[in-house]
Structure formats: structure tokens, C-alpha cells
């Protein structure tokens, strides 16, 4: 009996020592030397792995930061300046302050919801629907409404609005750009948040000629160029049948908003009552159409 116990103990003990040695050798042989700084940088990152920086994830971003020992060309949008400052402190480098950005959906919901021109019955994916046809709105440049952007957002900041066009929650949006990348029609753009969160943008990317664009959507940009003429900062350019406001130059004076005949230019974040009644009679009939981002539903009612 004692002998049996002894044998068992010896065999198991020997096995244990043997495997310990093997483990030690293997651990030495395959040791990965890693800069401890990477761990520290990864620690301050948000850890959402949103991919907005263009890297595979937060750790890959940290590795890239440590590898080049600066933040040049690298920016963690969700973390913003706070995280950038922390990383800069860890790396011992200086970082430029970036302007806070937000995702902007540049499509009017005027055509969607009840005004669909067809019924899409296939795979709920914008990327796929885009290869099939114009989409339910009939506008070949408009939002398809299947929500690829909603699925791409890691921060729950973009939701499908009642009218089938997504709505961005500016407070939650970290400007990582995942939605803009997911949109097959390049409708979503990252723009600056603006002073006091006030911003003006052309909410249309339709590149069709004026008359055709009007047929596609009542709120389409028809590239009439009135906005460009009225802009005091020369911030507006009309190219390829669509007007574009350069947010770096825009001072949010909103002259273009009142000038736009199709109400394709939206302003966001301005107090609603501050808007003076527009000179045109038809616009007077539609005071509710003055823009805040949320009452999209009202806008459509006015149009109908």
C-alpha cells in the first residue's frame, strides 16, 4: 500500500516537474516583448473598437501611437481632445486641439414614409438596395432607409427617424465616422459642431439637374446658386449640380437658409422663435418648417 502511494506520488511529481520545465522553456522561447506604454495608452482609450480611427481597434490604435511616438495623423474621435491630451501626456508629445465634429445626415425626409414611390421587399441593407434601384423615395441620391448607418454606430447615436431618414443624436455622436463609411450613398458627412452647437448645412446630395432633382424630391437642392450669391463668407460652392457649405468658412448667419427656394438648407441648434417670417408668401404658410433637427415630422406635413 505504502509502495503504491509512493509510486503514484513519484510519478505525478516527476510529471509535474517535467511539465514545469517544458512550460518554462516554451514561455522563454516565445516571449513577446511589448512596450508597456501600449497598455497604458490602450487604457485611456474608450475601448469601443469603433474603427473610426481607421485601425482595427483600440489596441491597434494604441500600438500605432506608440510606434510613431506622436499623434500625427491619428485621432480618436470618440475620445476627443480629452483622450488626445492624455495620450500626448503619456507619449510626451504635443497635440493640436481638434474641433469637435458631429455626423450630419444630408437628406430631406420629404419623400419617405407615406410618400414612397415603390415598396422595397428585399434584404434590409442599404448597401444591397443601392445595387438594385433608386430606393423607395425614387431619388437616386437619397437615403435608402435600411439603416446600415444605425447598425454601424457603436455609440447608439443614430436612429431611424419616423420618416425613414436617420436622425443623429449630437450628444451621443463621437464623430467616429463609422456611419459615414457605412452609407453607400455618402449622405452622411462629418461636420463641425459649431459655436453653441449651431450649424448650417445643405441637406441634399442630389447631383441631378434642377428639374430632374425637383421631380425626385420637393426639397432637393436644384443648384440654383442663390445661396452662394447671398453668402457673405464665400463659404458656399455649387459643383456637380449640388451646393455645398464649407463649414470651416461658414459663420452660421443663415442668409442661405432663408434664400433657398426648396428648403434644402437646414440650420440646427438655433432657437426657433428667433426666426423671422420669410418674405415669400408660400414660406409664410410654412413657419413650422423652420428647422430644428427633431421636428422632422412636422416638416413633411407642411409639404404635403
Amino acid at each position: 500500500m505504502t509502495q503504491q502511494i509512493l509510486i503514484a506520488v513519484l510519478i505525478l511529481g516527476a510529471l509535474g516537474i517535467f511539465f514545469a520545465v517544458v512550460l518554462y522553456i516554451v514561455a522563454q522561447k516565445f516571449k513577446v516583448v511589448e512596450d508597456p506604454l501600449i497598455d497604458e495608452v490602450a487604457e485611456v482609450l474608450p475601448g469601443a473598437n469603433c474603427g473610426g480611427c481607421g485601425k482595427a481597434g483600440c489596441r491597434a490604435f494604441a500600438e500605432a501611437c506608440v510606434a510613431q511616438h506622436s499623434l500625427d495623423g491619428l485621432r480618436c474621435a470618440p475620445g476627443g481632445d480629452a483622450v488626445a491630451a492624455k495620450i500626448a501626456a503619456l507619449l510626451g508629445c504635443v497635440v493640436e486641439q481638434g474641433e469637435p465634429m458631429v455626423a450630419v445626415v444630408r437628406c430631406n425626409p420629404a419623400n419617405c414614409g407615406d410618400k414612397r414611390k415603390s415598396n422595397y421587399d428585399g434584404l434590409r441593407s442599404c448597401a444591397f438596395e443601392n445595387t438594385v434601384y433608386t430606393g423607395e423615395s425614387g431619388c437616386p441620391f437619397g437615403c435608402l432607409g435600411c439603416g446600415d448607418c444605425v447598425a454601424a454606430c457603436q455609440f447608439n447615436a443614430i436612429k431611424m427617424g419616423e420618416n425613414g431618414v436617420p436622425v443623429v443624436d449630437a450628444d451621443k455622436c463621437t464623430a467616429c465616422g463609422a456611419c459615414a463609411k457605412a452609407c453607400p450613398r455618402k449622405i452622411i458627412e462629418l461636420r463641425n459642431k459649431g459655436k453653441k452647437d449651431r450649424r448650417v448645412y445643405v441637406s441634399c446630395v442630389n447631383r441631378e439637374k434642377g428639374a430632374v432633382a425637383m421631380k425626385s424630391c420637393a426639397n432637393a437642392c436644384i443648384a440654383c446658386g442663390k445661396c452662394a450669391k447671398v453668402c457673405p463668407m464665400e463659404a458656399i460652392t455649387v459643383e456637380g449640380n449640388v451646393s455645398y457649405i464649407d463649414y470651416k468658412k461658414c459663420i452660421a448667419c443663415r442668409k442661405c437658409v432663408t434664400e433657398c427656394p426648396t428648403k434644402a438648407i437646414h440650420d440646427v441648434g438655433f432657437p426657433a422663435p428667433a426666426v423671422k417670417p420669410a418674405p415669400k408668401p408660400e414660406a409664410q404658410a410654412a413657419p413650422a418648417a423652420e428647422k430644428v433637427e427633431i421636428p422632422v415630422a412636422e416638416k413633411v406635413e407642411v409639404k404635403s
Partner: peptide, 9 residues
């Protein structure tokens, strides 16, 4: 008439 249905084949 109803809206035309559209889908891939």
C-alpha cells in the same frame, strides 16, 4: 394601384 414591389431576384 398598389406600389410596385421591388426586390432582387
Amino acid at each position: 394601384m398598389n406600389l410596385l414591389n421591388i426586390s432582387g431576384s
